[in-house]
Design a protein around this nucleic acid. Structure first.
Lengths: 241, 241
DNA sequence: CAAAGAGTGAACACATATAGAACATGCGGA
DNA sequence: TCCGCATGTTCTATATGTGTTCACTCTTTG
């Protein structure tokens, strides 16, 4: 759990981000908490990072991102804090998925765990469509650090060994961020000719799209760009022994 | 997450894309932010790209794509262009994870996320002791399914490639359950002669203990059982791309 | 192909921001 | 009470952010 100071600081940052879109500098936080030194802020920030409430880019100004909030986001404002527009009450989370981008991630937040739930929606393998086990889609907890704060994520269980040289084994669970485009070299979920989903590395060659397996036993296959729809980009992997 | 200037520029680009359908040139951005040089814009653009707000095509004019906006911006009605398409019609998402999970009747005590925190206490590699135990032990969220309900768990970052054939790469995080014994074939954290910690596969040979790497470049080493102390057994792996 | 348009990037000067050490204080639990 | 921990402070050291100028390179277009 957080100390009061840590909580205050987290709320201050959150409010600032909500209102300005810009995270505060150490000096501004210092003023907000009524301190005379930025070092105190530094330690609080470090503590928040350790506890998984925020994430930072090292050595970048104002590069703070809020990953989650404590359970009781009630805004017992110490200072003249503004109410966040998105978060209300304690457990009532936002009902509108379309807001998922403007709010923090759109997944549930637990009181003390640096993780979020994503749906495990099926399996994926070379040559085999994603099975729809939509019914009762299982939820799986995924470390927040694995996901970007915005966007939608889902999980798939890996079948087959086509990506084994990338350290992706049968039975592993891959976490995917849903997006329609990706960069060269990304591992993506690709839907081929609207019926076959596969996990491969993306490589663009001129106007064509190459889908590379990470296993010499499988050949790279080339497609026209209209044959392939990118369903998302792999952002993480979870394996249980 | 962003500095004021970065935020201003992002908003300017966003508005221009919304209104004109074309992203502004550096000169136009220069004028908009009241600068006298495009170089400043160039650096801001680089910063925005680094932070994942925009994407660019190198050496292409006006080839800026907005990936996301800061959290305070209401994206309603503006997201049409880059809302990724869904995987398949009937696989579409389940926007209310909490309902899904409670509807499944899982015996979750933690009503929200199926995960727990474990401390990330250091790094491990062949031949190198586990570094620094306490200094700012960062907590990491780990799926509950990865851990047994009892027992103590911790996490280590992997250095080196000695287990690469087991799909364990440099930078991966391994989740370990603390225990003093393990079965043949388990991957364990072993402390050798009280000074060297290593991640290896356990193989007992008569009275001796063999520690096998999963990389042909490393040799299996044999120890007397009094030379090796088992620190725990690997139960999971987490990788972020 | 040449010119215009667009983007890159080094270098300099300041302004801001972050990192940490070192030491002091106050509070709650063993 | 003693100890550990979160917290406050002061100071010092670095690193990053910003605005500018200048010299190119790359693309697009007539």
């Amino acid at each position: 759990m957080l100390t009061k100071k840590q909580y205050d600081l987290l709320m201050f940052i959150h409010n600032r981000v909500q209102n300005d879109g810009v995270s505060p500098s150490f000096d501004e936080m210092k003023a907000a908490l009524d301190l005379r030194s930025k070092s105190g802020i530094h330690r609080l920030i470090t503590a928040l990072e350790e506890r998984g409430f925020i994430r930072r880019l090292a050595h970048r100004a104002r590069a703070i991102e809020i990953l989650r909030l404590p359970e009781n986001v009630d805004g017992t404002g110490t200072r003249g804090g503004f109410r966040p527009s998105v978060i209300e009450g304690d457990l009532s989370r936002r009902p509108e998925p379309k807001d998922a981008i403007s709010a923090m991630g759109g997944q549930t937040v637990n009181e003390d765990v640096d993780a979020q739930s994503v749906p495990l929606i099926g399996r994926i393998a070379a040559g085999i469509p994603i099975e729809a086990l939509n019914t009762g889609a299982m939820q799986i907890g995924v470390p927040s650090m694995m996901m970007s704060s915005s966007g939608e994520h889902y999980a798939l269980e890996v079948k087959g060994d086509s990506m084994i040289d990338a350290g992706i084994h049968e039975g592993d669970i891959v976490v995917v961020k849903r997006q329609a485009s990706a960069d060269n070299g990304d591992i993506i979920v690709a839907l081929i000719e609207d019926h076959e989903a596969t996990l491969k590395r993306l490589r663009r060659k001129g106007g064509a799209i190459a889908l590379e397996a990470a296993n010499p036993a499988y050949e790279t296959r080339l497609y026209r760009s209209d044959q392939v729809k990118i369903q998302g980009k792999m952002v993480g992997l979870i394996r249980t022994y």
